[in-house]
Design a protein around this nucleic acid. Sequence first.
RNA 1: GCCGGGGUGGUGAAACUGGUAGACGCACGGGACUCAAAAUCCCGCGGACCUCUGGUCCAUGAGGGUUCGAUUCCCUCCCCCGGCACCA
Length: 873
Amino acid sequence: MARGYDFARIEQKWQQIWEAQGAFVVTEDPARPKYYCLEMYPYPSGKIHMGHVRNYSIGDVVARYLGMRGYNVLHPMGWDAFGFPAENAAFEHGVHPATWTADNIAYMKAQLRRMGFSYDWTREVTCCDPSYYRWNQWFFLQMLERGLAYRGRAPVNWCERCQSVLSNEQAEGGVCWRHTDTPVVQKELEQWFLKITAYVEELLADIDTLTGWPERVRVMQRNWIGKSVGAEVDFPLAEGGSLRIFTTRPDTLFGATFMVLAPEHPLALRLAAGTGQEAAVAAFLARMRRADRTARTDAATEKEGVFTGGYALNPMTRERIPIWVANFVLQEYGTGAIMAVPAHDQRDYDFARKYGLPIRVVIQPPGEPLTAERLESAYEGEGRLVNSGAFSGQDSREGKLSICQFLEEQGIGKRAVNYRIRDWLISRQRYWGTPIPVIYCDACGIVPVPERDLPVILPPDVEITLSGGSPLARVEAFVHTTCPRCRRPARRETDTMDTFVDSSWYFLRFASPRETARPLDPEKVRYWLPVDQYIGGIEHAVLHLLYARFFTKVCRDLGLTTIAEPFTNLLTQGMVCKESYRCPEHGYRLPGEVDKQGRCTACERPVEIGRTEKMSKSKRNVVDPDELLERYGADTIRLFSLFAAPPEKDLEWSDEGVQGSFRFLTRVYRLVEEHAAEIRAARDLAWGEEGQPEAVRTLRRLTHQTIAKVTRDIEDAFHFNTALAALMELQNVLQKCQADLPAAAPGATGLAPAARHRLLAFAEGVEVLLRLLAPFAPHLAEELWEMLGHRESIFRRPWPVADAGLARAETVEVVVQVNGKVRSRQHVPRGTAEERLRQLALSDPRIQPWTAGRSLRKVVVIPDRLVNIVVSS
RNA sequence: GCCGGGGUGGUGAAACUGGUAGACGCACGGGACUCAAAAUCCCGCGGACCUCUGGUCCAUGAGGGUUCGAUUCCCUCCCCCGGCACCA
């Protein structure tokens, strides 16, 4: 194709030029403001998917736009290259995880290049490379030294499919995050933990400073940390000793009429001894042990329990209160025991009603007094303390404080805080990860690998079985080593680290990716960090983002950096969705397997069209970027993924919509190609002193309004969809204007002023269109820019600035309303005085019928906008 | 249950600090070009109604309220999506 929009040739050409020029390679430049634009790096699963395309297209517009605005833009890319799928591939296809990963990276990198993303590839980071993961080991050793990494025995979440431990985050909802059909089971193991709880208060408090983050992400992090403020109180046991509980409502202490233990609580069976309840309790505990844990702790599960036979004393009333054991109390939260206040806690209320336990009202809300008999549900709000001895009459908020103070004075309790978040369990019984740099010596115990011996290299020769624990444990040459302290034979740790360790600091590594003496160069990090704009999926709202915040704070405390938070602004882009087709006989069908009447091509039954959901292989509703690249080119795909929806919303994929984007780019191409000669010639012309015709002023107004609109849309909230709509409008108008251009390609002279002005305005409009389009469709913009005779890249040209004078409308349409309904419109000069507008409106013949015979009550005038005439009805 | 975000044409979506609801795109209908098709270009496109070069009424989940004027602000309710949830 000699003429026309040959996207394949154009895109390849400019990708090569950018590469050869090192167009996106950056270094620190104190003279320019910096901007760090980062998209979440991908797991090299094999091919990029539309989610990546959308994520990286958004990031690329941001990076290219800010580059044109004069910022020194860091826009790096890397690979989250450790992880389970590589082992799975090794098991299924016999290919080594390293080979599989490297092949995938090579393929996906080629895809990213073909999309034309403006990455500084000299900074590429690959997590499975020893030059990267050695620093994971280094960080681990630093944390070990400071007590932030520790070995503990703990009940762990275990996935039978993975044959590995999962973090709490990865076991959300009681199923494996990777195998959502596989229930997580509990096991007790010795594991390595990172002490994220040491930073919990700061992680919580600093959420308030993250004003550039979406509210929902901040809420999710707060919920995840789950801070509760209250008190720990020791209840004396009737038989001697005491039982400690945690409560957030110390103000209701006088209302505690019984206590409840978790089934795992060490006292549960002991209290029952010799009370006659022993057999009942033992049976109950056995049943709880057998029950599926996630089902047992589900809020929907019926509360049930059994009396232990033991009693405690309410420390305030000295009353004897029974101690029960029940399914709804969790051993791992608080102290594993609660005081039950049925009048003011719904769970306790339900339990008390079921087992006939006493209820005592101790908080009185304003209005009708509550009584235990009439209570139909727990009153959980604030109020005035009653039946509370010396504390009666206090407001419950005040009561909390004064009762805590009393408990502390008496030495029977203290203020306490509890968190839902647990320390981060990082041990994984897997091969393809960072070896934990620790040695076990019979004489010296746990010995850290000395820093000079890093990295502990992952041995290449290993048998991947996907079961039977850590693969490294079967690699004799790896396991057997000598103790760094006593030089006697010792064994290496054979677990590897959770891959979330890799992603917890990769954004710091990009500032100095080839640093060999340290994980990062503090000077370079000081220049580039924090990340100004981070872009990625909402699925990382808790896991990755919380760990990254934690690592950032640890780095600061290690003296490596000065920042408290890594990501100033966060954009969580929506999912890419598409409808699916399901045949009752053949399951999910590809679009090609459904005929025009909506029937399955295999059995002719009608298919059910599923609601649009996230693209997934199982739903068979994925769209392959490679195919689209082949058919339409990168610019079209980028454009559609930016135009179809604002970035934070889900995007519904539409093949017809993609064609629409392609049509637009084709029209832009033709518009420029057909008039390139005239536009080049216009460069030698000047506007001159003559007045410009109305049509010229109108076009220029739109051109400059479009600059303002596109700039505002990008700056305000990355509203690329409306920015592109404005560019389409400008294109539509320019296309109409081409008919009015001077006939033949003109020489620099000899054009009448009006013709000259039309040409100049057209040239101005086209060049602005290209420059505004450049961040979205970079290849096309570069090509057409060059066609217009420019020698330098369009990205070297600063972002256009709107001329406010030209953008301002000369006349405005003023709406005339009667009682709020539009009855007429008038075109008047901008800035027409209020009084004049009022007169024009009242004398408008079109409004006469609406006002005739009615009395004028009021006239509201909004200059340059509307006049509302209010008449009696 | 609590928290966050939503509900606008056939459809994806627009609407600045309350001021012309539906920009832009898709689909669809009609036309031009063509032997024909594709591509391209032009026109139309929320609904109902009327005395139809124009005009009226209705319409932003439902119902109230504030206002000269409400998609926008307030109250009540319904529905959808996401997160958290026997966390004491």
